[in-house]
Write a protein that binds this DNA or RNA. Structure first.
Lengths: 243, 243
DNA sequence: TCATGACCAAATAGATCATTTGGTCATGAA
DNA sequence: TTCATGACCAAATGATCTATTTGGTCATGA
């Protein structure tokens, strides 16, 4: 429970930022464990080793605090996707991305809650999110559209359906695999197997046989695209962290 | 409001059965409009033009009444699928079935509620269903497994993944398309378009290029299969209708 | 300068009471 | 005798009021 002997004034931006991160850590942890409604700011403050008022020096409201926690989780996931892409060009393909997201979600319950619209843990957050970070959500949509356009230009995905339909289809399939588990009372395959099936589904319904060359050509653009989204997210996150 | 001048004792099984159907009609209607929790047996009785006690002459409990209503809706849907299959062999393919189910669900809110696990309209039904009709649910799983096996024997679907994984994948994709609509706050394509995308997804990830002959060979077996399931459902339905 | 916890209004949870509802069964019509 | 019915009951649900908690502020003091 006891933190620093001297909970002294945070000297410098560095210390201050570390404290903000600690608060976000606590918020994330409690969000998953208790659900938005049941977590109090005071508890977050206590577990973060700061006073209650201090939390409000970092985040406008409870809502903003938890939304930021959620955004940070997504930012981290995007960063991982980027790492993967840099290591292996094939990782830019939708099937690989879907697979990674699916697997990651099984160890990051926050993101699962977002994507599946889990109202118990998210509470009213799911309603109010668009009011606070609507721009970001739109940006994500646009990024995905451009993503498919780029893939298309390099003959890596089918060209038959319009781009926005492909995006919709990808969301639908991914969501389906995520939601089906808790929904059906009966036998579900283990995570790894399901992830492979998901990748198979996405691959066969979106992608073409890939040419190694065309793939490599596309990599920088795709990476740039997601890098842009990542920066947009981080920007939004630090915008929420006050002063 | 007024029904027969003579709400007389139901003479013969025919009249009695008509009355049961009327009660099921009312129950279905109110289930969709109000949700399980808010519907009272008395209201169902009033709207069906019978006394409250009479409802209990037909169905053991409130739960059983509404479960039967739900089963009947599924039975009707299965019947339609069978009609389609008889009219056109290609309708036995998973892509076509998925498409039909998806479209039908947009005009049959009951079934949507089931498949998407809509807890607001279904209430506690979703939890308790397996206790009452667990056998039927298992039968449906087995039927789907056999369905894929038959398709496989006629070279109509891929043979790479195990059958039960294919079933799981089909459920996942269909569920995804169903759930994604209410979930995402943003642009969704219109029903018909989404249905086509769904069919495309299912076709490209499960089916092979179909030989007309092989298709026709499979038709009778597939139809028999679903016919069996249909009978199993109707059997369960009439088992619930008392005496 | 800046972290803090007492403080306030508003929301939530608890407790108590009134109403409704699922399910039964004695009654009476046919 | 057969069978539909609505009064009836215990249990669940909802309404209402009170006590507590909680999000958010700000005077205080390190």
């Amino acid at each position: 429970m006891t933190r620093l002997d001297h909970p002294a004034t945070a000297t410098g931006d560095a210390e201050r930022d570390r404290r903000a991160e600690r608060i976000l850590d606590t918020a994330s942890e409690l969000l998953v464990a208790w659900g938005y409604r049941r977590v109090t700011i005071e508890e977050v403050a206590r577990r973060s080793g700061v006073g209650k008022g201090t939390v409000y020096l970092h985040f406008h409201t409870k809502e903003v605090l938890f939304l930021t926690a959620v955004m940070r989780a997504q930012s981290v996931m995007t960063e991982r996707l980027l790492q993967d892409m840099r290591a292996d060009p094939a990782r830019i393909l939708p099937s690989s991305i879907a697979r990674s997201i699916y697997l990651r979600i099984h160890e990051e319950p926050i993101i699962r809650a977002i994507l599946t619209g889990d109202t118990d843990t998210l509470g009213t957050l799911s309603r109010t999110a668009p009011d606070h970070v609507g721009d970001l959500l739109e940006a994500r949509e646009r990024t995905l559209d451009t993503y498919f356009e780029v893939l298309r230009e390099h003959d890596l995905v089918r060209t038959s359906p319009p781009v926005h339909l492909q995006r919709h289809a990808l969301s639908a399939v991914l969501t389906g695999y995520l939601v089906i588990g808790p929904l059906t009372p009966y036998s579900t395959p283990d995570t790894e197997t399901a992830a492979d099936m998901l990748a198979h589904t996405v691959r066969s319904s979106f992608e073409t046989g890939h040419h190694e060359d065309r793939l490599n050509e596309a990599v920088p653009r795709i990476i740039g695209l997601f890098q842009g989204l990542l920066e947009r997210m981080n920007e939004e996150i630090s915008r929420q962290k006050l002063t």
